[in-house]
């Protein structure tokens, strides 16, 4: 059974059909790239899966469970973590606190216990801290640990957001344009980081990406959306040379 199964998903905003009968199945431990021109419905699809939007029709199943109508925090609890196209960090927190916030679901402390801050709370905080430090090491972010994220450069923010998503220890990781705005070195690094993480932590990854070279490097499978419809689905070499895909990306004359 696929980890993520989307069936006939449709959603419209006013007169715009953002997604029209989109279906796909993502297998466990795959790295899948979702591509398509601007306005194709990629981010909308992410928002439907994570419960931010509610689809008009269709179903989304995650790990066999119907999550079509679940709220975002419930979907997160089931093991879906994400990053956002326009970086959504907690600006006034340090990088450390941002990533610690990502451990929320793995901690138990209630308000009264927190006020007393007894041994059990300290133990839990220390355990969370240890996990976060591992992620900081892994993503080479130690220098940013105590910096308020609003003062960090763009590429570093992207990595902090990735670390925060990983802190959830998700089964499925949704990355919305993880390399947007990055230099080519940073992009290359991102490819390695994501591939290693997916392998080491056995995470399934679905990512939106515009850079086709990066898509070829990173993913085993590519799904193409255009005007809310799925127009291709397959291995990167086949899909990126597909006539319909090329037409969607660069126009008819190409």
């Amino acid at each position: 059974m696929a980890l993520l199964e989307i069936q006939d998903l449709s959603i419209a905003f006013g007169g715009v059909q953002a997604l029209a009968d989109v279906s796909m199945a993502i297998e466990e431990r795959q790295i899948v790239a979702l591509i398509g021109p601007n306005g194709a419905g990629k981010s909308t699809l992410f928002n439907c899966v994570t419960g931010i939007y509610r689809a008009d029709r269709g179903t989304i199943r995650f790990g066999g469970e119907d999550v079509t109508k679940e709220k975002p925090h419930r979907v997160a609890r089931l093991g879906v973590a994400r990053t956002f196209q326009n970086i959504e960090l907690f600006d006034a927190m340090t990088a450390l606190d941002n990533i610690l916030a990502g451990r929320h679901l793995h901690m138990r402390t209630g308000p009264l216990a927190a006020m007393a801050f007894g041994r059990a709370v300290v133990r839990e905080e220390v355990a969370a801290r240890r996990k976060v430090e591992e992620l900081l090491d892994r993503l080479d972010l130690q220098f940013a640990r105590d910096v308020h994220v609003m003062h960090l450069p763009y590429g570093v923010k992207k990595k902090v957001e990735l670390a925060r998503a990983l802190a959830l220890e998700p089964r499925l990781l949704l990355l919305d344009e993880p390399s947007a705005g990055m230099t080519s070195e940073e992009k290359e690094e991102m490819v390695f980081v994501v591939r290693d993480l997916a392998r080491d932590l056995s995470i399934t990854v679905l990512l939106v990406e515009h850079d086709l070279a990066m898509v070829r490097d990173i993913s085993e499978r590519v799904i193409v959306l255009d005007h809310g419809k799925k127009i291709a689905d397959g291995a990167p070499e086949d899909v990126t040379t597909d006539v319909a895909v090329v037409r969607a990306y660069v126009g008819d004359e190409a």
Partner: peptide, 11 residues
Amino acid sequence: DNETAAEAMGV
């Protein structure tokens, strides 16, 4: 700081 992100973290 960010309700959307907070929810995505499971809050």
